[in-house]
């Protein structure tokens, strides 16, 4: 499938991974200035999984992202200023109007469904979206992201099994990033490869290098093709690593430094830059230009969010019912 990628697509992968990282870096600064409210979770080192997988979808498809999947939301068309406002608890179009936090925002038109915090609960919901798509003859695909930890929930099991049995076009992306908060994967589940779980549901499970954006894209394309062809659900396990603590408050002292060093070498963005240069798709100057363009854009977007108003107190009473 690599052959079919255009130069622009290769560059888009880079653009969105870089955008994800830079956006999160900007959020970190805002967090330190007490402008980001509540916790801040980063996807440092995992950008390729979110971006590569989302690129395999088309308009009309749906994702349900988790805290490490801001990149997938960007691909789906969320605007940085919407995310900035959302993280700063501000009001505005495309936010939850201060009612919910971080990536908990939804847009049925752009195709992202905000999760609730209760891990695993989005799997049945995304199965339902896939089911309706099938009933309505829409030929859409849904994709639900979750971590290795979230795959220990009952809701995960019920949702995946349900989608499998009903042959629903739902792809479950298990982002195996080594840890669930402080819990290493071996304390979460005894199989080394989470993709193996697919066997128990009678659906395909594929392992992919989660730090290789092209590999993630291709694996997801295969699952999407199957789903669109009516062959049902599948699981993709993206092997990656959480390069920062669970959230800003966690310095992840429990992660051995040697492990981090190994994964540092596998940085998805750094390695992809090399790939682009080696294949004459970019050079240092063009990459630098792109990076600067992104930073300038984010600066404007963050400014807009900074100037945006907080929601009106009384507005909290609205919207519980129709």
């Amino acid at each position: 499938m690599t052959e079919t990628l255009s130069k622009q697509q290769y560059l888009d992968f880079y653009y969105y991974m870089r955008m994800t990282r830079s956006l999160e870096e900007r959020l970190t600064i805002l967090f330190r200035q007490n402008k980001v409210i509540g916790g801040l979770y980063r996807s440092l080192g995992q950008e390729a999984t979110a971006v590569g997988s989302a690129f395999a979808l088309r308009d009309g498809d749906f994702i349900s992202p988790l805290i490490r999947d801001m990149g997938a939301m960007l691909v789906k068309g969320v605007k940085p200023q919407e995310l900035f406002k959302q993280y700063m608890a501000k009001d505005g179009e495309g936010t939850s109007h201060g009612r919910d936090l971080n990536i908990h925002i939804a847009d049925m038109k752009r195709g992202y469904v905000g999760p609730i915090s209760q891990l695993g609960d989005m799997v049945p919901v995304m199965a339902g979206i896939a089911l309706a798509g099938k009933m309505q003859g829409k030929n859409i695909v849904t994709m639900v992201y979750l971590g290795d930890g979230a795959s220990s929930t009952g809701a995960f099991h019920e949702g995946v099994n349900f989608a499998a049995v009903l042959k629903l076009p739902m792809i479950t992306i298990i982002e195996n990033n080594g840890y669930a908060f402080s819990t290493p994967t071996e304390n979460q589940c005894l199989v080394k490869d989470f993709a193996v779980k697919a066997k128990g549901y009678g659906i395909p499970g594929e392992i992919v290098d989660g730090n290789d954006v092209i590999a993630v894209y291709q694996a997801t394309c295969r699952a999407v093709d199957r789903a669109r062809a009516g062959e049902g659900a599948s699981i993709i396990e993206a092997k990656t690593f959480r390069m920062l603590g669970h959230a800003q408050h966690d310095n992840q002292s429990y992660v051995p430094k040697e492990v981090l060093d190994v994964w540092h070498e596998k940085d998805p963005i750094k390695n992809y830059q090399e790939f682009l240069k080696n294949n004459n798709l970019a050079d240092d100057a063009s990459l630098k230009e792109m990076d600067e363009k992104i930073l300038a854009y984010l600066e404007e977007e963050a400014d807009i969010a900074d100037r945006a108003p907080f929601p009106q107190p009384e507005s909290s009473l609205e919207g519980v019912y129709f």
């Binding site: 608890a89 907080f310 929601p311």
Partner: peptide, 16 residues
């Protein structure tokens, strides 16, 4: 508290 979910944004949560 009023009959809504617990809102996140400071002015909303303080109101709640």
């Amino acid at each position: 508290a009023p009959d809504t979910p617990v809102p996140y944004s400071p002015p909303l949560e303080d109101f709640f």
